[in-house]
Design a protein around this nucleic acid. Structure first.
Length: 746
DNA sequence: AAATGAACTTAGTAATTCTCAT
DNA sequence: ATGAGAATTACTAAGTTCATTT
């Protein structure tokens, strides 16, 4: 079955308007439930984990590299030439000499507890050395090349030296980073379930204590000034700060807030404050706004000071040592208290999210590591040493009583390896997707209702990239659905629509209450089945009443180890990108056009996955601005053209041998060409932006597209990787950038 | 076999920082 | 130098999945 997965998703799609799709009589109870518990659990475990990247007959180069014994790699010292090349033409198509270059930065050195309490940057010692080692000459050369890449239209306000110096520093830093990067993808994997052997960190960072309001700022109740207790005042401030936000106008939000606020009040306050409408937060609100404004108007120096203070916190709490490598922590701050901001029609919006105390926090680190100090006067809830999980600290949040975790940054080994594994599973699906499609096509005809429902659900998941759709507890969260939890009210069947047969119209709120609206022609088998499923059901009844995600996933994992519903999203996203890139991009295009093609391919995926965004507030304006610039450039072009014509004419009249006039012609020609190029670039940009109005590319780029596809494309197309991935993204995908050759195929 | 718990990925928005034209 | 607008980063909510408990 050939598939262009994004094909059907072309019709109207809009950001959901609040309350647009309303739940009616929801009946979460199954009519019947037959979940057979085939025991695939073990099977999966064994077949996916240990062999995951090596078992395949697949002989990607990238995979071979995984097996490279690390000892070999680590011994070789830095060759500064190789290093230079790396910095300069990071992503030329030629082979990298890089592999050897690995710096064995920090031997698991015997001084086993060199793991310093403050997690001192382990490369500190070598920094000096490095700086010296890299001769000045070499660096200057680098700069020159750098500039060729990004020609600076510098109107040297500062002295040349200063600029040079800044550049120099930047380059040094870059090299430093490159050098200290942990090339974990070249190492052996750990055995099943083990996530690390050693883990040390300084614990989470706690938000500052509440600072009571200044004496001249007051809260008023029923027109009367009222001094609140600290606890009540803090919560009042949360609300006051949000007064400009739509949230504070919503009934549910206000009610939840008021209820929780009253819990924080003293008995006296509670007896007085009975009605939120009589509360006047305007002075507190004004103070807050003034504060924000004041912060904006700080002098450069003051801002710098703040920044440095912040930096210090990051230094202390933002990193950990994982297997003796310094890794960045993704979210090292305990979430501060505030009012819960659920998305969509969340029944708990406005509730008070409480301040977390150290006594509620569990610390996870290795046995031999220094246990982080709790804030003075406090103790941890628990310290455990569980190396089968990746989190450093956790606590239970009071709104949904779910657990929150402190985990590593996306550029860490732990996250990167998992990401890589995810794409490997998706590629495995590629090799058996035809069989699986045949299977569910066959299952559509099954006698068993469960099987047919499963087949239709799978058809949707595969064709439309719907999410699995777990059941949710009613009243606990916003009413959103995915595939398995679709209700009758979410689809409309059309025998005939816009010249198509058998069209299914979807209209529901998905994750984050983003509306999914789509009209899809389906095969008649699916159409007929859907009709059957809807027989005798109320709009609020479940469409797939015999099915749930666990049943579906159990089935999937029997078809292929490691296969779950979400793998289809990853697979279809990545394969679409690859196809679209092949289709849309031309080697002969210039870089701007190539990038447009890339973005279009990316966009096809974002549309497939329904990744939307609110159109930027300034969208219309900025579009108009760009158009104005284009018009201006057009005029300039016309002028340049006529000048060229004029010059040509003169040259002809005076005899073409006149060297001077000939030179003028050449100059004008060049001007016209330059103008045309700039115009084209802007027009391309305008197209790109317009097409992107309500579509968010970031999510798919970060979570669904195998980075190796993009890296290979860049190499094939001679596009520098920096055009596709920014710094953070390059760090996240370092493994892919490093290991991927031009011939990679997903 | 259903509910609950735990761990981890995916998601959009808000805040902050950067960049470029003026 | 400045300020608008773009780009990036921070934040944390909302999913999926698998394991455990009831």
């Amino acid at each position: 079955m050939t598939q262009t997965p994004y094909k059907c998703i072309v019709m109207g799609r809009e950001k959901c308007v609040e309350g647009e799709v309303k739940a009616k009589s929801r009946k979460l109870k199954k009519l019947d439930g037959g979940e057979s518990s085939g025991d695939f659990g073990d099977l999966i475990k064994h077949s996916t984990k240990p062999m995951k990247f090596t078992e395949e007959a697949n002989n990607e180069k990238s995979q071979k590299k995984v097996k490279t014994p690390k000892a070999e790699i680590q011994q070789v010292s830095i060759c500064s030439d190789a290093l230079k090349e790396e910095t300069m033409e990071a992503f030329s198509t030629k082979k990298k000499s890089l592999k050897r270059k690995r710096v064995k930065d920090e031997p698991r050195d015997g001084s086993s507890h060199s793991v310093s309490p403050r997690l001192k940057r382990k490369t500190d010692e070598s920094e000096e050395e490095t700086r010296e080692r890299h001769s000045k000459k070499r660096i200057e050369k680098s700069i020159k090349k750098e500039e060729e890449h990004h020609p600076l239209p510098k109107k040297a306000k500062r002295t040349k030296e200063e600029i040079e110096e800044a550049k120099l520093l930047k380059i040094q830093k870059k090299e430093e980073e490159e050098k200290s990067r942990w090339r974990w993808w070249e190492e052996e994997k750990y055995e099943d379930g083990v996530k690390w052997k050693s883990l040390e960190h300084n614990g989470p960072y706690f938000p500052p204590e509440y600072q009571p309001l200044p004496d001249d700022v007051h809260f008023y109740y029923d027109g009367k000034k009222m001094k609140l207790s600290a606890a009540a005042e803090e919560v009042a401030l949360f609300f006051a700060q949000m007064l400009d936000h739509e949230y504070t106008t919503k009934k549910v939000f206000r009610e939840n807030f008021f209820k929780d606020w009253r819990k924080e009040m003293s008995p006296e306050e509670r007896s007085v404050i009975q009605d939120l409408d009589k509360c006047d937060f305007s002075k507190i609100h004004a103070m807050h706004k003034a504060k924000v404004e004041a912060r904006k108007n700080l002098t450069k120096e003051e801002k710098q000071t703040l920044k440095e203070a912040n930096q210090k916190i990051v230094e202390e709490f933002g990193y950990c040592l994982l297997d003796h490598h310094k890794e960045r922590i993704g979210n090292f701050k305990i979430e501060p208290p505030g009012l819960f901001r659920g998305r969509g029609e969340h029944p708990k919006q406005g509730m008070l999210k409480k301040r977390i105390q150290p006594e509620e926090v569990i610390i996870n680190c290795s046995k031999d590591a220094r246990v982080p100090d709790p804030p003075p006067g406090h103790r941890w809830k628990e310290v455990r040493h569980d190396n089968t999980v990746t989190w450093l600290a956790s606590w239970t949040e009071n709104i949904q009583s779910s657990i929150k975790y402190i985990m590593l940054n996306a550029n860490s080994k732990l996250k990167g390896e998992k990401d890589w594994e995810k794409y490997e599973i998706a590629r495995k699906l590629k090799s058996c997707v035809d069989d699986i499609r045949n299977t569910y096509m066959r299952d559509l005809k099954s006698k068993e209702m469960v099987t047919r429902q499963r087949a239709v659900a799978l058809y949707f998941i595969d064709e439309l990239a719907l999410r699995a759709g777990n059941e949710k507890e009613e009243g606990e969260t916003a009413d959103t659905v995915g595939c398995c939890s679709l209700r009758v009210e979410h689809i409309t069947l059309h025998e005939q629509l816009d010249g198509n047969q058998c069209v299914v119209e979807f209209d529901f709120l998905g994750k984050d209450s983003i509306r999914y609206y789509n009209k899809v022609p389906v095969i008649s088998k699916v159409f007929k089945s859907l009709k059957r499923f809807m027989d005798n059901k109320e709009p609020g009844d479940e469409l797939f009443d015999r099915l749930n995600t666990s049943l579906l996933n159990k089935h999937l994992s029997s078809l292929m180890p490691g296969l779950t519903a979400k793998v289809f999203r990853t697979y279809n996203a990545s394969i679409t990108l690859q196809q679209q890139l092949k289709e849309l991009s031309n080697k002969s295009d210039n870089v701007a056009e190539k990038l447009l093609s890339y973005n279009r391919a990316n966009r096809a995926v974002a549309i497939l996955c329904n990744h939307q965004r609110a159109p930027p507030k300034t969208f219309e304006q900025s579009m108009a601005n760009l158009q104005a610039k284009i018009d201006a450039r057009k005029e300039q072009l016309a002028l340049a053209k006529s000048e060229l014509k004029q010059a040509k004419k003169e040259a002809k009249d005076k005899g073409s041998s006149d060297g001077k006039l000939q030179a003028v012609v050449e100059r004008k020609k060049a001007a016209v060409k330059r103008c045309e190029e700039q115009l084209l670039k802007m027009e391309v940009q305008a197209t790109d932006r317009e097409e992107n109005k309500q579509i968010a590319l970031g999510t798919s780029k970060l979570n669904y597209l195998d980075p190796r596809i993009s890296v290979a494309w860049c190499k094939n197309m001679d596009v520098p990787i920096e055009k596709i991935y920014n710094k953070t993204q390059r760090e996240k995908f370092a493994w892919a950038i490093d290991m991927t050759e031009a011939d990679f195929e997903f």
